[in-house]
Design a protein around this nucleic acid. Structure first.
Lengths: 192, 192
DNA sequence: GTCTATAGTGAGATAGAC
DNA sequence: GTCTATCTCACTATAGAC
């Protein structure tokens, strides 16, 4: 997760907005979007609900801000992916970079994964889902077999799964293991 | 199991109790446990909320009933699994039977998967999680490598993932594909 | 076994003082 | 930029009539 930065670098803006996002992400990921009330966010920050509404016009606006960075990063990643050749080695480079960039996004991805019902009603949920579908489609050959389609989906979701299913393993060891398993899944895919 | 029926009509079943469970499962899986109100369940059944409370003492008692059958089935499956030898071929038989029995449980598993925050607060959520952990531990060799641990988790999770990520594919074709991919994942695992 | 009516709670959101 | 105070709404759950 992101580090604390004890003395916030309050440049031109009120750092409160950033602190709201940070606390909101922690609580959303831990207790879920619906079950986290604005009261709880405000209390942890030492302010009142009304203060939140000075910085964000709604609860949904808060989670939108939380997702903003990841969504942009995914856009860049997908755009880059589309420029890559449809070869086996290229796919593996893509996988490696995906595992790499998933490190910083694990809280947001967990939030997205575990809050299906909420994500279906939020704009960020739709945006996130659109990106994942786009990524899967980009990686999947035109006339891929059903097992191949499955391998690609499993490979991508395995990255997220492993992040919060095996937290007792050191990060570097886990990363190496993810890459290994994802590679052997993609290795079976025929890239025509 | 605890009987949650308040006034417990022992003799004949009204049938309403079953219909409540059925409708509740549909709505819980589609809109989520928290977002499905008792009012919606009652309305779809053509009764009032108060009628639900005649058959179940709480909302949680409804979802407990919904999970009851699956939990018992998993208990049986896990018990059987523990009797199986720790060989490659036995593991594949286990996988095949797991895929088979996952067909009828897909709605419940989706509900469990997509409602992380709610499941953390419900008894059935803990029970379900305990079974899955037990299953993973049973299948995982004592000194398995990290990649092997990952392969087993991914294999089990992949079964659920594919059920609601590729609904456009015919069931039999999808089942065959799942078995194929799960087998090749487990094939890499070194047993003992 | 199902109804009407309502208690009790807590959520998101707003108005206006400071 | 943050506060107090309040509004509106929906929910779970209960009481008691029929």
């Amino acid at each position: 997760m992101t580090d604390d930065t004890p003395t916030a670098p309050e440049g031109r803006q009120s750092g409160t907005r950033q602190r709201i996002q940070q606390v909101a992400l922690e609580l959303f990921a831990e207790y879920g979007y619906d079950k986290t009330s604005l009261r709880e966010i405000a209390e942890r920050l030492g302010v009142t609900k009304a203060a939140l509404y000075y910085h964000f016009k709604s609860k949904e606006a808060i989670i939108a801000a939380v997702f903003e960075e990841i969504l942009e990063e995914m856009d860049g990643f997908i755009a880059w992916t589309k420029t890559q050749p449809r070869t086996s080695t290229a796919r593996q480079q893509i996988a490696q970079r995906y595992v790499e960039s998933s490190k910083g996004a694990s809280s947001v991805m967990r939030l997205f994964q575990e809050n299906g019902p909420a994500m279906r009603e939020l704009k960020v949920g739709e945006q996130m889902r659109d990106r994942l579908i786009d990524l899967v489609n980009t990686l999947t050959p035109e006339h891929a077999s059903v097992p191949d389609k499955l391998r690609i989906r499993i490979a991508l979701f395995a990255v997220q799964l492993s992040r919060f299913s095996m937290q007792d393993v050191p990060v570097e060891e886990l990363d190496a293991a993810i890459v290994e398993v994802v590679f052997e899944l993609l290795d079976r895919v025929s890239w025509e």
